[in-house]
Structure formats: structure tokens, C-alpha cells
Computed example of a mutant assay.
Amino acid sequence: MEPIIREAKPRDKPFIEEISRLTWGGEDYLARIFDEWVKDGNFYVLEVDGKVIGTAKLTILPGKVGWIEGLRVHPDYRGRGYGRMIHNFILNLGKKLAEKEVIEALEFATYFLNRESVSMAEKTGFHVRAKFFVMSAPAGETLEEPSVVEPSINDVTLGTFPVGWRFLHRCDETVEWLRKNAVLYELNGLRFIGPKGGATFTALDPGPAVLRELMPAMGWVARELSLDGFDVMIPSAMGAVLPGLRRVGFELWDDKDEPNVLVFRKKI
């Protein structure tokens, strides 16, 4: 049978759970958000001989952005062009949504060592819009519960603003999106933000002293989610603070002191 790409359905969940279990050492998030994505729509699967072996999601973000996420191929089927097939399908979907004026551009983020995704992006007209460092830290033993506050436009401090592994543009529409999809935490007058149900955070001031003071609160949120640690996103312009962040307990995912998260954009 020829491969087919169709909208994901509830019956596909066992296949998605298998792909998720075999991705990122079993730490992939896809299985956890499957039901939410099916409900949201624009969630697609690639089926081969009755088996779902790939996925992709197109999420509409503020600023008329079509955000590509969840692009996966089962390890047993990689290297056969299926990833490119899904990628091209999403590009065509983006063009249709652009014709309806729903979106104006496609964007996505990937780890800098994901050579296949980077190569496909470059070959299909994407360019790097922004770069970030993602660093990790253990939850630790000293924890402190932060308060939750309402976000405002003043909290969107960057032109490209990370909320977990989604990156938004600074506009009024973003604030409403944050109220529905993110949590803004505060401890001792210092604020950080993360996605609902997630532990990848962005501090509104990413300096070492601020992050050191926020670590007990970030650790508290991680523990509430039954996690042993958390991640933070740091703008590439803050590369000079990496040594200071290491001294307070943060580590890069790799040994290279270069931005390891790339945000791509393609105007359509």
C-alpha cells in the first residue's frame, strides 16, 4: 500500500505511544499530549501498511504563525524519506492556510544537532530567526513554592519569546495566548514563565544571580510535575553568562558553548 497522511484519530494512540517510547530515550512528550492535540486539530499521522509510523502537528500561534511541532518517524522507518514526506505535507498545508490568510509564515524549533531537520529546513527555504541555549539543572533539595501571576505585555521581553519549546512573537495577541497556555510564576519579585504542565522555563531576567534565586521555585514546579529537574531557555546574546550559570548548577546538554536551539522561519 502507498503511504497515506491523514488526520490523527483516538485509535492511533497506541502507535503514538510506541513512537514516543522510542524517541529521546523514552522522554518524548508526544504520548502525554496526544489527546489534547487530537482535539486541537491539524495533527497528522503517516500510515504505512496499516501502521502509523510518523506524526506532525501544525499549531496556530499569535502573529499568524503556523508552528510545526511533533514531527516524528518511528526508528524502524527512518532513512527512507518519510520525514521529508511529512515535512512537505506540512509545507503544503501551510500554503493553503496562508491563502486563507490564517497564517503568514511557518516556524519551528529544533536542537542544533538534529542534522536531518536542519538540512530539510535549509533546503525548503527556512532561515534561522533566533538562537537560544537550553540548559538543565536538578530540582535540588531546597524548594520554595512560587506565586502565580497574570501576564501582561510588559512580561514579553523579547522579540522572539520562548514558552517551553514554542517561540512566540511580541504582540498583544501573545498575552491572551499566554493566559491560556502558560504559567507566569513569581518569587521575591522575580518572574519566570513556562508552559502549562511543563518544566522548561524562561526567566524574564536570565542573569546568573536571578536564576540562582529562582532555582528553588523552578525546582518546586518540577517536583510538582514528578520531575527530577528542569530546563531553562537563554537567549544567544547572553552567551557570556554561561560560566556563571554553570557555577550555580546549570549545564548545557552538550559540551559546545554555542546556541543549541535554532528557531527557523519561512515566509509563505
Rank of each mutant, 00 (worst) to 15 (best):
R265S: 12
I60W: 03
I86C: 02
V128E: 07
R129F: 05
K267V: 15
E17V: 13
D40W: 01
V73A: 02
R191Q: 06
I60M: 12
A209M: 01
G164I: 11
N42K: 12
F43K: 10
K180I: 05
K39T: 11
N88H: 14
V248H: 05
G194S: 14
V65G: 04
G219I: 06
V175D: 11
M120S: 04
L252W: 04
F126Y: 14
I153D: 01
A217W: 02
R21I: 01
V263A: 10
H74E: 06
K51N: 09
L168D: 00
V232F: 03
V263M: 07
S226E: 14
W24T: 09
Y44P: 03
I33G: 01
N260T: 09
R72V: 02
A209I: 06
E186L: 01
F112C: 13
I153M: 13
N88D: 14
H127R: 15
V65T: 13
T202P: 01
V65I: 15
E251D: 09
K51E: 12
L225S: 12
T55G: 05
L227K: 15
V38F: 04
K256M: 07
R212K: 15
E224S: 10
K131V: 00
H87M: 10
G239K: 05
S119R: 14
G70N: 07
D255Q: 01
L106R: 06
F250K: 09
D228K: 08
R179D: 05
L97V: 06
A105R: 15
E145W: 00
F132Y: 15
G83C: 08
A130E: 15
G94C: 07
V156T: 02
M120E: 09
G207H: 11
F15C: 04
K266W: 05
L46Y: 07
G79I: 05
R78C: 07
H127I: 14
L190Y: 02
E104F: 04
D231H: 13
Y77N: 08
G244P: 12
E173C: 06
A222G: 08
K95I: 13
H74K: 13
L143K: 08
G83E: 09
E18M: 08
M120C: 00
N42F: 01
